[in-house]
Design a protein around this nucleic acid. Structure first.
Length: 407
DNA sequence: CGTCCACAGGAATGACGGGCGG
DNA sequence: CCGCCCGTCATTCCTGTGGACG
């Protein structure tokens, strides 16, 4: 069983290098940003507080990598200079709540905190006193703050930006990283201005920059002569067309390599990249779909049925009608329309549905909702679910009974 | 140019399961 | 074990609104 795998001409030398959480030695095309952030945090080495920084840029533009890169080097330097510098990197989206952000901050300065049970204020207070007594200069990196701000508001940031006023023996600085360039619109102006004493924007990479990034990593990741130029170029081009997203480019390249490996090919070519593209998207959708809650699944199913009945752009009311009927059929009490509306929004931001608000003038204002993936895919996912499988072939009465009068 | 549809989406509130410290 | 607090999901009530129609 393994002989074949081991015996095959191997494609990868070290595939870890292509994972996007891998931190390479060099970050091509980000020298400018590295220099600027370096200059901003440098005062820390002389015992001064550094400016707060706000970093913007879309996904895969290297914000996280650059920040981590600079901080790693700063850490080395601080040991050299014997400067009492402490760091904390927190990804707000992963961590999820305000409470847990503070918990993370506490842990980084060695203050133990129960992961639930205390009030947020209490945890903050413990962090503050802990930090003050540690007599250090503290840099907190809050990655993907936009996720937190949009769901919980800016109280967390407000507290943090003001923390220096109550610190005697320590100093704190903030590095905020946001994927959303419009973040300032969500922030209290006072918070925003103190948070962005310095502002850095990460432009998306263009195709040739992506090509260089891929090239650097491919040298280490792939065996010699295995990767064709055209495959590499295609990865770069596809990712550039999307957002200039390096993460995307790396994923494409890695999966293309895996495809080639599985096929026993000697060289990774364009065809493998094309296949990788499909593969990634397919996986993404299937995974997302599988992990939805029951009611979200039923919402998707409702949109599916509407599309099957030739209604490609359903509105909220129609979806609710179908959804309620399916719930009934399943013996589940339906959620309210208000709730369904937010579920639809969630599905929209996951890229499973496409929803946009439109006005039909005299005939009201609603959302037009479209399915974002192939119907066959939904069928595949649902059919393997023993509880919901039968609903795929169920015909909602509200769709068949009266001939629909839509314009 | 006002009306009025069919919702959008914010705010307040509550139920619930889980975990804390005492 | 209790009382408290947490985050999450959901409901209820609500005000807001783009633009075709009359």
């Amino acid at each position: 069983m393994f002989d074949r795998f081991v015996g095959e001409a191997h494609i990868f030398e070290d595939r870890e290098v292509l994972r996007h959480d891998y931190l390479p030695e060099r970050l091509p095309h980000r020298e400018e940003q590295i220099r600027r952030i370096g200059e901003i945090v440098a005062p820390v080495l002389k015992g001064a507080r550094c400016s707060n920084v706000f970093i913007y840029g879309k996904t895969g533009t290297g914000k996280t990598a650059v920040t981590k890169h600079v901080l790693t080097h700063l850490e080395i330097k601080s040991k050299e200079f014997n400067a009492p510098v402490k760091f904390c990197y927190i990804n707000c989206r992963m961590v999820g709540s305000e409470y847990r952000v503070f918990t993370g901050l506490c842990q980084s300065i060695g203050v133990a905190v129960p992961f639930t049970g205390l009030s947020v204020g209490e945890v903050f207070e413990r962090f503050r006193t802990g930090l003050d007594s540690s007599k250090s200069i503290f840099i907190a990196v809050l990655d993907e703050v936009d996720a937190l701000i949009k769901s919980r508001g800016d109280t967390l940031l407000y507290e943090l930006t003001r923390i220096n006023e109550t610190l005697d023996k320590s100093k704190a600085s903030l590095v905020g990283i946001s994927n959303d360039l419009r973040l300032k619109e969500f922030l209290d102006p006072r918070v925003f201005s103190s948070l962005s004493e310095e502002e850095i924007v990460f432009r998306p990479y263009d195709a040739s920059e992506l090509r260089n990034i891929l090239f650097e990593r491919a040298k280490i990741a792939f065996s010699k002569g295995v990767l064709s130029d055209s495959a590499l170029n295609l990865c770069a081009a596809l990712a550039a067309a999307e957002h200039g997203d390096a993460r995307r480019a790396l994923d494409l390249l890695r999966v293309a390599g895996e495809v080639a490996e599985r096929k026993g090919a000697a060289v990774v070519n364009e065809e493998h990249v094309r296949e990788a593209e499909k593969h990634i998207e397919h996986n993404r959708v299937v995974e997302a779909l599988k992990n939805l809650t029951l009611h979200s699944k039923l919402v998707v199913l409702s949109v599916y049925h509407l599309k099957k009945a030739d209604i490609h752009q359903a509105n909220t009311g129609e979806i609710y009608e179908v959804y309620a009927e399916i719930c009934d059929e399943l013996g589940v009490t339906p959620l309210t329309q208000r709730r369904l509306s937010t579920l639809v929004n969630e599905l929209d931001s996951m890229g499973l549905l496409n929803a946009r608000v439109i006005s039909m003038g005299r005939y009201g204002r609603t959302k037009k909702i479209r399915l974002e993936m192939a119907r066959s895919l939904i069928k595949d996912v649902f059919i393997s679910d023993n509880r919901l499988g039968r609903l795929i072939d169920y015909d909602p009465k509200c769709l068949s009974k009266n001939v629909r009068n839509r314009g």
